[in-house]
Simulated assay, not measured.
Amino acid sequence: MAPRLSVVVPIYNVERYLKECLDSIAAQTFTDFECVMVDDGATDSSAAIAEAHAAADHRFRLVRQRNQGLGAARNTGWRNLTPGTEYLAFVDSDDSLPPGAYQLMISTLDKTGSDFACGNVKRFRSTGYYQSGAHVKPFKETRLRTHVTELPPLVTDRTAWNKVYRRSFFDEAGIRYPEGILYEDAPVSVPHHYLAEAVDVLSEHIYHWRERELDDPSITQGRTNPRGLIDRVRSMELVREWLTARPEQRFRDNLRSYDYNCLVEEIPMFFWWVPDGDRAYRAVYQEHVSRLLREIGTDRIRDLRTPLRVKYQLTLGDRMEEFVALQRVHRAYRRRVTKLKQRAAAAKAKG
Rank of each mutant, 00 (worst) to 15 (best):
P3T: 05
R4I: 02
R4P: 00
N13C: 03
V14S: 09
E15F: 03
E15I: 01
Y17A: 01
C21R: 06
D23F: 01
S24Q: 02
A26E: 12
T31Q: 08
C35Y: 01
M37E: 02
V38I: 12
T43W: 01
S45C: 07
A47D: 13
A50Y: 00
E51R: 13
A56G: 14
R61P: 02
V63T: 07
R66F: 00
A72I: 04
T76Y: 07
L81Q: 13
P83V: 00
Y87Q: 04
F90L: 10
G100Q: 12
L109M: 14
S114F: 03
F116R: 10
V121W: 03
G128S: 12
S132W: 06
G133R: 13
H135M: 09
D157Q: 12
K163I: 11
V164M: 08
F169C: 00
E172Q: 13
A173R: 10
Y177K: 04
G180E: 07
E184L: 09
D185H: 04
D185Y: 02
H193D: 06
A198S: 15
V201W: 04
L202A: 06
S203H: 11
E204A: 15
H208A: 03
L214E: 15
T224N: 13
T224H: 03
P226H: 07
L238M: 11
R240D: 06
E248C: 11
L255E: 14
C262H: 10
E265F: 10
P275G: 10
A283L: 12
Q286I: 02
V289E: 14
L293K: 15
G297W: 11
D299F: 08
R300Y: 10
R300F: 07
R309M: 12
K311A: 12
L316T: 07
G317V: 05
R319S: 07
E321T: 13
A325D: 15
R328Q: 15
R335Y: 04
L340G: 01
K341N: 12
Q342C: 00
R343I: 13
A345C: 08
